[in-house]
C-alpha cells in the first residue's frame, strides 16, 4: 500500500514539493505517518503543531490510512 500526502504552507516549503508519495510499506496510521514524516524531514518537528487531515477532516493518531484516502499535512492555520 502506498500513500499520497498533500503538503500546504510551511510543510510544502520544508518537504520541497506539494505532493509526496510514500511507497509500500507505507505508514498504517496517522501516528505512524507523522513519525515517518518527522524522521525524513526533522524540520516538521519544529513546528508549533502539525495535524493530519484524512478526507477533509482532522484525524486522530490512531486512525488507519488507506491508499484511496485524501491525506494532507496541516501545519498551524492562520486564516482571518
Amino acid at each position: 500500500m502506498s500513500l499520497k500526502i498533500s503538503l500546504y504552507g510551511i510543510t510544502r516549503d520544508i518537504v520541497g514539493t506539494s505532493v509526496i508519495e510514500l511507497p509500500a510499506p507505507a505508514p498504517a496510521t496517522v501516528g505512524e505517518l507523522l513519525a515517518e514524516m518527522r524522521r525524513q524531514y526533522p524540520a516538521l518537528a519544529q513546528l508549533r503543531s502539525c495535524a493530519v487531515a484524512v478526507n477533509n477532516e482532522y484525524a486522530e493518531e490512531s486512525q488507519a490510512l488507506h491508499t484511496v484516502d485524501e491525506i494532507a499535512l496541516i501545519p498551524p492555520v492562520a486564516g482571518g
Binding site: 494532507a72 492555520v77 492562520a78
Partner: peptide, 13 residues
C-alpha cells in the same frame, strides 16, 4: 471568526 481562525485550513505568509 474566532473558530475559523483555529480550524479552517488557510495559511498566511
Amino acid at each position: 471568526i474566532d473558530t475559523l481562525k483555529q480550524v479552517v485550513t488557510i495559511w498566511k505568509r
